[in-house]
Simulated assay, not measured.
Amino acid sequence: MAYRELEKLHRMHDGYIRAFDLNGHPLLLVQDDGVPRLLINRCPHMDARMDRGQVANGHIRCPVHGIAFSLSSGMAEGPMAHCLKQLETLPLVYQGSGVGVEL
């Protein structure tokens, strides 16, 4: 496996959101409450891109239908949450002053 740096840690802040396309895989790096997370850049509801969503209070909100997903569990919240799949996440790898992913 090969490490691919996505961002320098000093550039990240709460509300940070940035999309990547690595080998045809749409990824989304976000940070909230001091915790960086790596998501698949796709809403499990209707495959909308999440990079135009809002990140705050431990959630990311889909820009298309407004569905809020917990960043810690990936689960949707709200009245229809039980009908939806959860967000897909990937483990982050920290190397030196950067954060990235193993490909």
Score class of each variant (00 low, 15 high):
S72H: 09
G78H: 06
S72W: 07
A19S: 15
L6G: 06
A68D: 14
F20Q: 07
S97A: 13
L39W: 03
R37D: 00
D51F: 07
M12W: 05
S73C: 02
V55P: 02
P91H: 10
S72D: 14
I17Q: 04
G24N: 12
V64F: 08
A56W: 03
M50W: 03
D33N: 14
M50R: 04
C43I: 03
R4W: 05
H10N: 15
R11S: 11
H13S: 13
N23E: 13
H10P: 05
R11I: 13
L39E: 00
L84E: 07
A76V: 09
D21S: 15
L103A: 08
V64N: 07
G98R: 06
H65Q: 08
M50F: 01
M80W: 15
A56F: 01
A48L: 03
P79F: 11
V101Y: 03
Q31K: 11
M12A: 10
L71C: 04
H82T: 14
A81E: 04
M50E: 01
H13R: 14
G100V: 06
C43K: 03
G15I: 08
Q31G: 02
H82K: 13
L38K: 07
L29Q: 04
A48M: 12
Y3A: 09
H25F: 14
G24S: 08
Q86H: 08
L38H: 11
G53N: 00
V101E: 04
Y3M: 06
D33R: 14
M75D: 12
A2F: 11
V93W: 05
L87C: 01
A68H: 07
L90K: 12
K85N: 11
S72L: 09
F20L: 06
Q31I: 09
E7W: 04
L38T: 05
L103D: 08
D14N: 12
Q86A: 09
E77W: 06
